[in-house]
Simulated scan of single mutants.
Amino acid sequence: MNVSEFSKHMGVNPHTVRYYDKLGLLDDVYRLPSGHRYFQEKDIAWFEFIQRLKGTGMPIEKIRIYAALRKEGKKTLASRQDMLKEHSAKLQQKIQIEQQHLVKLNDKINLYQCALDGKISLD
C-alpha cells in the first residue's frame, strides 16, 4: 500500500508517515523504482510499535536510536532490551505518580459531592 493508504489504515496523517520516514524510522520500508514507499504487513507492526513508544512518552530521539539498533539486527538485541527496560521503569514510575494524582483528584470530587449533598459545609 502507498503512503495515503497506509496512513488511512494506521489512522494517522500522511505527513506523520513521511515525517517518521524522514527521521529514519521507516528505513526498511520497500521502495519502488520510482522512489515511492510501498508498505507491507510487517511495516504495520513496526509503525504500531513506534506509535506505542511515542504514546508512552519515549522521546523521538530515543526511538531513532532504537530504530537504528533494530536495523543492525540480532547483535543489538541486548541493547534494545536494555532501552525498553529503562523506558518501562520510567513509565511505571509515571503511572504510579499519575495514580496518586487520580486519588487526590477523586478525593476533591468526593469532597465537593459531600458539600453538594449538604453533608459538610465548605466556607
Rank of each mutant, 00 (worst) to 15 (best):
E61C: 10
Q40K: 12
Q113D: 06
V3H: 01
L32P: 13
E48R: 14
G24M: 06
I97G: 02
M58A: 03
K119D: 03
L32K: 12
A67W: 02
H101K: 14
E98V: 12
P59Y: 12
N13W: 09
A45C: 02
I60C: 04
Y19S: 09
I65H: 10
Q40I: 03
K90M: 15
P33C: 07
P59T: 12
F39M: 07
N110I: 05
A67H: 02
D21W: 09
Q51C: 12
Q93M: 10
S79V: 02
H36W: 09
H87R: 15
H87V: 10
K42T: 07
R18L: 12
K85L: 15
R70F: 03
L84Y: 05
L32S: 09
Y66P: 00
D28K: 13
L69N: 01
N2A: 05
G11S: 06
K108G: 07
V3L: 08
D123S: 10
A89N: 04
R18S: 11
P14D: 07
E5Q: 11
Y20C: 05
E5W: 02
M83A: 09
E61V: 10
R37H: 06
L25E: 00
K71A: 06
M83Q: 06
Y66N: 00
L105K: 14
H101V: 11
T56P: 07
Y66E: 00
R64M: 13
Q96Y: 07
P14E: 07
